[in-house]
Write a protein that binds this DNA or RNA. Structure first.
Lengths: 236, 236
DNA sequence: GAAATAGTGTCTTTGAGACAATATATG
DNA sequence: CATATATTGTCTCAAAGACACTATTTC
């Protein structure tokens, strides 16, 4: 038995976050790549990358595939955000969209090169987008900012090793406020493993490099932990 | 343009929580109504109430409708839980289910009378259920228990006015541990409005009745607040 | 006034945050 | 040794929790 519907289309869309310098302040800030639509509805508007779910793939796989196909990016973290299913959210047809949000590292972000159809926008300065995509991004931003405060999600923006200042600057970029270096250190250091290496070259005391203690996951999503995708962090 | 799929069915399922006395301890505990399946797959197994999403209704409306049709219950709180979309989660067909969770008050819970096809189970003592419904319930339980600690969601189990002991017993039932009455009072009292009424009749000092300060919502779901359904609490 | 729950007071511990002080590189 | 950031130390304040104590009703 296959239900009485069949005229509902199922799509996925993904809010992709990466950190880059803010054009005016120079500080690290959140950016999002958007794609230009080529057809109606909302022809030529900017929209979240996404596409249809095929029968042969799970929804999280569909999100990862669409993410890569539209932006050439592979995410280090990918989590379901929310399913949007109001009747009138897509003019001209009934579409239920399952939204995901993703975090990518700077190297990956560079792969989503700007083009006629892909452009990066500051997460807090978006133009009006197609469909309900402004609302979806608002919600993803809220979730990211909330989650940075009670989990180690910030790690997904960084490589395998990092200094405490680098980690702090990720938090500052996401939360949009300065954090006290001394207090920040005391909060996160117990969850980290120091390495033997330091970063020399600056004209000041060289900071130590840390790595995450992999024994605990990045985020506690309860019984759903396994449904969230986290790329393995390189062995070194 | 309608996508390249069309062989994916979209369903909703809802985890309904109500409080009732535990059969052995007598304390308040979480119960869930389940429905017996009548067809394969999983014929005669117990399953979450739910059904197909029709093209004419939003997904949250579909959840509310299925909830009522299968159990005669109207929820005071209804929130989206998660979209489950693994390829193999439903033998014999591709089904993506959007799960919701609901809280109902005791009066409403009584409307879901036991029958051959509807039975209430203790949330922590469930038999093996159809599909991935055990996992869905585990996640709903986790979300409820997490949310009780940082929001006022417990209110959805109670009427318009209540004593602090009644509210504390809701928290205790959900969290499965005793809470100190004095400390509990100090934590929640600032969010409540006292009424002039007290409850007399017990052979002890009569407790005051409180109502919620409606100026703040039950839960902060960020930019999605409006997508969550809360029944209005009666004026009195 | 005995019993039972309602409600208040108080002490301890813990964590967050502000901010001073010390450490160690480079040039 | 001047500079700049790294790292440690210390103080204050607020919230959580344990638990003693007082208040008010019914029987």
């Amino acid at each position: 038995m296959n239900g009485t519907q069949g005229d509902i289309s199922l799509a996925v869309s993904t809010v992709i976050f990466a950190l880059r310098a803010h054009p005016t302040t120079g500080l690290s800030a959140l950016w999002i790549p958007l794609v230009r639509r080529t057809r109606d509805p909302f022809g030529s508007s900017w929209a979240l990358p996404g596409g249809w779910v095929t029968a042969a793939e799970g929804i999280v796989d569909a999100a990862a595939r669409n993410l890569f196909e539209t932006t050439s990016v592979e995410a280090t973290y990918l989590e379901q955000l929310y399913a949007f299913g109001d009747v009138d959210r897509s003019p001209g047809g009934r579409v239920v969209s399952i939204a995901y949000w993703a975090l990518v590292r700077p190297e990956q972000a560079q792969r989503a090169t700007e083009s006629e159809n892909v452009r990066w926008f500051l997460a807090d300065e978006l133009p009006p987008l197609a469909f309900d995509h402004n609302m979806i991004i608002d919600y993803a931003l809220w979730r990211l900012r909330t989650k940075v405060e009670y989990s180690r999600i910030a790690h997904a923006f960084l490589g395998a090793t990092f200094t405490l200042t680098e980690l702090r600057e990720v938090h500052e970029a996401v939360l949009q406020r300065a954090l006290d270096p001394a207090n920040f250190r005391r909060q996160v250091e117990p969850t980290l493993s120091p390495t033997d290496a330091v970063v020399s070259g600056g004209r000041h005391r060289p900071p130590r490099l840390y790595r995450y203690d992999e024994s605990n996951g990045l985020v506690d999503n309860g019984p759903l932990g396994q449904n969230t995708r986290s790329a393995r962090v390189g062995i070194n």
